[in-house]
Amino acid sequence: MNPMTKANLFPSPSWPTVPVKDEASAYPVHRIFCVGRNYAAHAAEMGVEVDREAPFYFTKSALATEHTGAVVAYPPGTSNFHYEMELVLAIGKPVFRSDRATAQKAIYGYACGLDMTRRDLQLDARTKQRPWDLGKDVEQSAVLASITKATGLATIGPQRIHLEVNGETRQEAHLSDLIWKVDEIVSHLSHYYHLEPGDLIMTGTPAGVGAVVAGDVITGGIDGLEPIRLTIGAAE
């Protein structure tokens, strides 16, 4: 028997999905790439310089996907759990080693997302020059609203991006503040990966990140996109 055809030892989860506005079918999530330090004011509040030579990335497991409206338990191993409001790109066609124009055409749609972060673990790893996995690749930490097709958002730039905690505004900027624009990000990343439908890219967060505790309600939005909401539950 070909070992590749053997039955699984245990049930394997199916790909998580994200609803698409005005579509009956959902978008399956295969990979999640995240751009670091893509707003100058956020880099400054984190005490670091912006690298303007090229974007840099970290990743989250697709199984970290959670839907807007969820209640997520305060995660283990942290006492400094942070929100990060982000524009998310959904890839809709294969793209590899592309120029910016081709990269733009590969974007299927856009969504609001939250990159929830164990900030204390991220900063400890940064200080020790270690990977950020414990701080960033957290269960239920890639919170996503419904995807709006790219045709419904003709130009990326003037839109306001914002986040509130218990109704109080904590983050507010415009997508024009992105250091690396959406077509630049997709083009650059496509020189390192064969990007495919199912790949999401979280494009970075504005200044104003901060901690949340059990009972807090996070809301956020980007002009023209479906808004996002998350409630922080008690620790398990």
Rank of each mutant, 00 (worst) to 15 (best):
M1Q: 11
K6M: 12
A7G: 12
L9F: 13
L9W: 11
L9G: 03
F10T: 03
P16K: 07
P16Y: 09
T17E: 15
K21L: 14
E23Q: 15
A24D: 14
P28H: 10
H30V: 03
F33A: 02
C34N: 08
C34M: 09
R37E: 04
A40H: 00
A40F: 03
A41Y: 01
A44C: 00
V48N: 08
V48Q: 00
V50F: 00
D51Q: 11
R52M: 02
A54W: 02
K60Q: 12
S61F: 11
T65V: 15
T65I: 12
H67F: 00
A70E: 14
A73R: 13
Y74N: 06
Y74F: 15
H82I: 01
H82Q: 13
Y83Q: 10
Y83K: 04
E84G: 04
M85C: 10
L87V: 08
L89C: 10
L89M: 11
A90C: 13
A90E: 09
K93C: 11
P94T: 10
R97N: 15
S98I: 05
S98E: 08
D99W: 07
A103H: 09
Q104R: 15
Q104I: 00
K105R: 15
G109W: 09
G109Q: 10
A111F: 05
C112D: 11
G113A: 03
L114I: 09
T117H: 05
R118S: 05
R119A: 05
D120S: 12
R126W: 04
K128N: 10
Q129D: 13
Q129T: 11
R130D: 10
L134K: 13
L134C: 03
G135Y: 08
E139S: 11
S141W: 02
V143S: 05
V143M: 10
L144M: 14
L144S: 06
A145H: 06
A150Y: 05
A154P: 06
A154I: 07
G157L: 03
Q159T: 07
Q159F: 04
R160D: 15
R160F: 00
R160E: 14
I161R: 05
T169N: 04
R170L: 02
R170V: 15
Q171R: 08
E172D: 14
A173Y: 00
S176F: 00
L178Y: 07
E184I: 03
S187N: 03
L189M: 12
S190R: 10
H191F: 06
L195S: 05
L195G: 08
D199N: 13
L200S: 12
L200N: 10
I201F: 07
I201L: 07
M202A: 10
M202T: 02
P206T: 04
V209L: 14
V209Y: 05
G215L: 09
D216L: 11
T219R: 13
T219M: 05
G220K: 09
G220A: 11
G220C: 06
G221R: 09
G224S: 10
G224T: 09
P227Q: 13
L230S: 10
T231S: 13
I232G: 04
A234I: 09
E236N: 15
E236D: 14
